[in-house]
Amino acid sequence: MTYSTTAEWALARAALDETSTPGAGPLSARPHVPGEAFWLRGEETRLAFARFVNMARRQRGWSIEKLADDAHIEVGELMSIEQDGGHEPELRTIWRLSEIFDVSQARLMELAGLASPKDTHAIEEAVRYAARSTAITALTAEEQAAFDGLVSVLRDKAK
């Protein structure tokens, strides 16, 4: 491609940008003001939160049931946290989890989308770690056994 411009051209043309912001294609969509804003990244950080709870639990070798018992949290609430990115955990649950996993309650609330992050770098880091942690290894023997059991149940049901 041939392309050359001058400083004079840039000055003259830039005047056209003065009252608006260029943008095209739905991928570039952003809030239209006056319109409405939203709380950024709720789902993204919540997925990282789910990942954290899942890994912290597994690192200790606990089942969801065991964690639920020890932390006095409903089993259903824990399953929703780990598996449903749209689930909004209860404040009390966050408090229990921060106690049992020995992490900052405030940070955990931010990650769960219940408080606006004071330190966006930290939350961004957490999200990055969570993304990196997505399992790429094969299932462990226990996971495989559980999975096989699950599959067999599903196959029975299908008949």
Partner: peptide, 23 residues
């Protein structure tokens, strides 16, 4: 976006793709 929120611009009536802000 924080500044928008501070200025009372709220969350309803979104007119851009939901996936935009996190995916």
């Amino acid at each position: 976006l924080r500044r928008l929120a501070d200025n009372g611009v709220t969350r309803q009536g979104l007119d851009w793709p939901q996936s935009w802000h996190w995916d």
